[in-house]
Each structure stands twice: as structure tokens, then as C-alpha cells.
Design a protein around this nucleic acid. Structure first.
Length: 275
DNA sequence: AATGCATACAACCGCCAGCTA
DNA sequence: ATAGCTGGCGGTTGTATGCAT
């Protein structure tokens, strides 16, 4: 036996709301409130709609504090940052954007923001340096910092991973002030070091346990390939350590990472096959 | 002008958690 | 303890609109 429907679907209207229905719902809620029962509300308000439909219409459209219209760059950044941290928890993300609904944010992400990210028009938050405090902390972990990164290749943040399945044993991060780079040191499963520059569009962000002062930001990081491996940069290849947060980079080991590629042809002739 | 396609966004569906009787 | 109800949520679908051909 299936679940009982929340309303008699044969006797409720569906599809777009008319201005009259909007007015009736708005007037009723503003005058009497929801009474804590959306299911009973349409009958009381004289609306031939499912209660859930009324609730959705009110929350996503009729509520007085709803903000309609384009998203700002700041809102873009907040959405990207939170998506990177917590994934598609739209209600949580929307709660950080006054006047925006989860449906709004979800639609915006699915129709625009995701494409903008893939096109490289925006990156994750714009900090392009590793803070001294964060660097110190990272270096303090020099000998204990062993995040095993199971690399799956995807067009982050999409999930169409192609999974080359190599494992990098990411030991630590070492500054090379002369070169202006940070060098991740890898374990025995790799035979190369990779330099990290801060000049590219696509970025990664590592958060460290609830304190912005210790955030390790590697925005705009680009892992270029050693010359004997061919030119990764020319191939348009980048690595995106899009850890499945909320794990803590420096103390929450064992998380999965991703390596992303922006340019599809890189996948058919990858520069990293000799890893 | 007609048609087809892409995009944006509104709305629906089904699952789940929490509450209550 | 548990069954039923409701609200909340994320994924998906439907529809209106704009644009290209």
C-alpha cells in the first residue's frame, strides 16, 4: 500500500497560479497566518489548491521579504563557497542570502552559476594567497600531514567524473619564496613534484575548522606539470582539490579529493598518465 | 511569419524527519 | 512504542519566453 496523498489531487488546481489565487492566499496569510497547518489552509482560504502548493507559493513568491531579480557577485561567491563546503544543501545556502529562497538558489545554480563556473568566468573566493598563519600551520604538519587524495577527474562541481583512479599521497605543502610558488610534496605513489602558481582562474579553497584566521586558501591555484611531462598549462589542465568538505584539510585526514579538468581533450590524452 | 531550440524559473513529486495522539 | 500526519527539503519536470534560423 502506497503513501496516502496529501490532498485529493482530482479536486485541486495545478499549474501556474493566477493573480486571484495569489491575492486570496496573500490576504489570508497576512490576516490569519498559516495557523501552523498548511494542509487545512487552502480550504479555509477558499483556494482550490494543495496545501503544499500553497506553502511553496507563499515561501517562494508571495512572502513580503522575497528578493527577486539578479544575483550579485557577492551572492555568487557565497553560493560557490557554500556549495564547495556543504554541497547542494540549498536551504542552508539560502539562509545565508537574505531574501533568497532555496528554490531560487537552486535554480540559479543549475541554470547559470554552474555554467559560469565551468566557463571559468568566476572562481571560488578571490583570495589568492595563503595566509602566513595558515602556512605556518600547514608546515607544522609537515611530518604528519598525509592526506590521501583519491583522485577522480571531474568537471567540478559537476559530478560527471571519469575516474582515472590514481592515488596521490599528498604529504605537505612547502613554500618556495624565490619562485613564488608552493610545492605540494607527494608520497611514494608519485614521482614528481608539482608547482603551484597563483595565476589561474580556477581555484580551490581549503577551510580550516571554523576560524577564518586559519583558513588555508589556495585560490587560483594551478598545478603545472614538470617540463618532462609535457605542458599541462598548454593543455588547459588544472587540478582542483575540491575536497568533500566539511572535512578539515589540516586535521581531518582521509577525505576524498578531486582533480578537475576544464578541457575535455585533456581527458583523452592526459598529461598525467605517468604518475 | 513560422518553427525549433535554449534558457529561466515556477511548480510538482516523493522522500524523510519530527511531532503528536 | 508506533502509526499517522505535516512541514521541509532536494531533485526533477513543466511552461513561458526569447532568440536564432
Amino acid at each position: 500500500m502506497g503513501r496516502a496523498p496529501c490532498c485529493d489531487k482530482a479536486n485541486v488546481k495545478r499549474g501556474p497560479w493566477s493573480p486571484e489565487e495569489d491575492t486570496a492566499l496573500k490576504n489570508y496569510v497576512e490576516r490569519y497566518g498559516t495557523g501552523g497547518n498548511w494542509i487545512a489552509l487552502p480550504r479555509k482560504a477558499g483556494i482550490k489548491r494543495c496545501g503544499k502548493s500553497c506553502r511553496l507559493r507563499w515561501l517562494n513568491y508571495l512572502r513580503p521579504d522575497i528578493k527577486h531579480g539578479g544575483f550579485t557577485e557577492e551572492e555568487d561567491n557565497i553560493i560557490c563557497t557554500l556549495y564547495n563546503s556543504i554541497g547542494s544543501r540549498w536551504s542552508v545556502i539560502a539562509s545565508q542570502l537574505p531574501g533568497r529562497t532555496d528554490n531560487d538558489v537552486k535554480n540559479y545554480w543549475n541554470t547559470k552559476l554552474k555554467k559560469k563556473l565551468i566557463a571559468g568566468k568566476i572562481g571560488f573566493p578571490s583570495n589568492t594567497t595563503i595566509s602566513p598563519a595558515a602556512l605556518t600551520k600547514a608546515q607544522n604538519y609537515k611530518h604528519g600531514f598525509s592526506a590521501s587524495i583519491n583522485t577522480s577527474f571531474s568537471t567540478f562541481p559537476l559530478s560527471n567524473e571519469v575516474g582515472l583512479g590514481q592515488n596521490l599521497d599528498f604529504k605537505t605543502l612547502v613554500a618556495d619564496p624565490a619562485a613564488g610558488h608552493y610545492i605540494p610534496e607527494f608520497g611514494t605513489s608519485t614521482n614528481s613534484s608539482y608547482s603551484v602558481s597563483s595565476s589561474q582562474e580556477v581555484s580551490s579553497s581549503f577551510s580550516v575548522a571554523a576560524s577564518s584566521s586559519t583558513s588555508l586558501i589556495m585560490d587560483n591555484s594551478f598545478f603545472s606539470w614538470p617540463s618532462n611531462n609535457g605542458g599541462g598549462e598548454e593543455d588547459g589542465f588544472f587540478m582542483d582539490f575540491g575536497f568533500n568538505s566539511p572535512y578539515d584539510l589540516l586535521s581531518g585526514f582521509g577525505f576524498q579529493g578531486k582533480i578537475s579538468t576544464e578541457v575535455a581533450p585533456s581527458l583523452t590524452n592526459p598529461p598525467y598518465t605517468n604518475l
